[in-house]
Simulated assay, not measured.
Amino acid sequence: MPDIQEHVDTLARKFVPSYRFLRSQKSTIDSSHFIQSEFKSKSIKVLSWNIAKNNYDKIWLRDFLNIRKQYQPDLIFLQEFRLEVGVEKVIEWLDMSWNFAPNFIDAHHQSYSGIFTAARTSSLSKKVIITKHHEPIIKTPKISLITEYPLSHNGATLLAINSHLINFVDINKFRIQLHELELALSAHRGPIIFSGDFNTWSRKRAIILDKAVTKLGLMPVNFAPQESRKIKRFLLSPPLDWIFYRELSQKKTSAQVLDHIYSSDHKPLLAEFSYTDTQQK
């Protein structure tokens, strides 16, 4: 019986030209749009969504603008975001500061693909973590973007992590990516929001993720059962998309999954948090 990896490599050579997917030379592409100097501690509204590279689609844009108008998120995490090469600073539909971390360039479509984080305030710092291992077929890594923002309490800062975890690889490579994130987050003293598409389509992956976030003192957003059922899954698998948090209070009635949205195969996740002096350590 032929080796599975050899079979995958043969398919890759046949259907995906080696020159199509290129490593980006840019760590991040950024835009600062001044709206407010810091996050308001009484309400931090979060939107997290794997948009399946549909942000140039008119239906997706209509959905996104309606979500923004109705829910007014302060912090937006988008995975599988596409940005055309040469127009990096032109996103006319978003009046927020943003950071985009591409994990590859699609030479055929002349576009970047990666992780996109937008906020009502500019980030104080940013860090990109790219996986050492690549997914098969297109041979591209996965990426995480860590941004830090000021909070309106005693110089505290919020660490925001937007992640897309590696898929179609053995479980050890998934564990390695999470361990790298653990190391990066463990140095932060203060509130954290860790969100994205974690590709936890198996119980083993979900257990590894749970151990990692528990070690960091993070809790998952508590979606009501009728909301949780709407989150992207494969058959009876655990959810793929998560929002975790630390040293914040979740406003439980705010946790929603917008299952009326069909412009991506993932549904948008919404949550709202507050932060007070008593939560500081």
Rank of each mutant, 00 (worst) to 15 (best):
Ser41Phe: 11
Phe234Glu: 01
Leu216Ser: 12
Ile176Asn: 01
Ala107Val: 00
Ile192Arg: 02
Asp106Ala: 06
Ala212His: 10
Glu135Leu: 10
Ala206Phe: 06
Ser125Cys: 07
Val169His: 08
Ile193Thr: 07
Ser202Glu: 12
His33Met: 12
Pro225Gly: 00
Asn103Lys: 09
Leu235Val: 01
Trp49Ser: 04
Ser41Trp: 03
Pro220Glu: 01
Ser195Pro: 02
Val8Leu: 13
Ser228Val: 08
Ala212Ser: 08
Ile192Asn: 02
Asp277Ser: 09
Ser195His: 01
Leu270Gln: 00
Gln36Cys: 14
Asp57Glu: 09
Leu61Asn: 15
Tyr262Thr: 15
Met219Val: 11
Thr157Asn: 14
Leu158Ala: 01
Ile138Arg: 07
Ala118Phe: 01
Arg82Val: 02
Ile138Gly: 04
Phe104Tyr: 13
Val257Thr: 00
Leu183His: 15
Glu148Thr: 13
Asn99His: 11
Lys126Glu: 09
Leu145Arg: 04
Lys173Pro: 04
Phe100Cys: 12
Ser18Met: 12
Ile208Lys: 07
Phe273Arg: 04
Pro191Thr: 03
His260Glu: 02
Asn50His: 10
Lys142Tyr: 10
Ser97Tyr: 12
Pro150Asn: 00
Asn66Lys: 13
Leu22Pro: 08
Asn167Gly: 08
Gly86Phe: 01
Ser249Met: 03
Thr214Ile: 08
Thr200Asp: 00
Phe234His: 13
Phe168Ser: 15
Phe39Tyr: 08
Tyr19Gly: 09
Leu181Ile: 11
Phe244Asp: 07
Ile166Tyr: 03
Asp170Lys: 03
Ser237Gly: 04
Trp49Asn: 10
Ser43Lys: 13
Leu240Asn: 05
Thr131Tyr: 03
Lys230Gly: 07
Ser125Asn: 12
Ala101Glu: 02
Ala52Ile: 06
Asn50Cys: 14
Ser113Pro: 07
Arg23Ala: 11
Ser274His: 09
Asn54Glu: 12
Asp210Thr: 14
Ser237Arg: 02
Val16Met: 02
Ala187Glu: 15
Tyr149Leu: 04
Tyr71Phe: 13
Pro191Phe: 01
Arg120Asp: 10
Ala52Met: 14
Ile261Glu: 05
Phe34Ser: 11
Val85Asp: 06
Ile138His: 11
Asn50Ala: 06
Ser32Gln: 15
Thr140Glu: 10
Trp201Arg: 00
Lys53Tyr: 08
Asn50Lys: 14
Ser264Pro: 07
His266Asp: 05
Met219Ile: 07
Pro225Phe: 02
Thr253Phe: 14
Gly190Ile: 06
Phe223Gln: 01
Leu270Arg: 05
Asp241Thr: 14
Leu209Gly: 02
Ile138Val: 13
Thr147Ser: 11
Trp98Ile: 04
Lys173Thr: 01
Val221Glu: 03
Asn103His: 06
Ile146Ala: 07
Asp9Pro: 00
Lys173Cys: 10
Ile29Thr: 09
Gln250Ser: 14
Asp57Pro: 12
Ile115Asp: 06
His153Tyr: 11
Ile51Ala: 08
Ala119Leu: 03
Phe168Pro: 11
Ser144Ile: 13
Val213Gln: 03
Pro220Asn: 08
Ile129Pro: 02
Asp170Gln: 07
Lys53Leu: 13
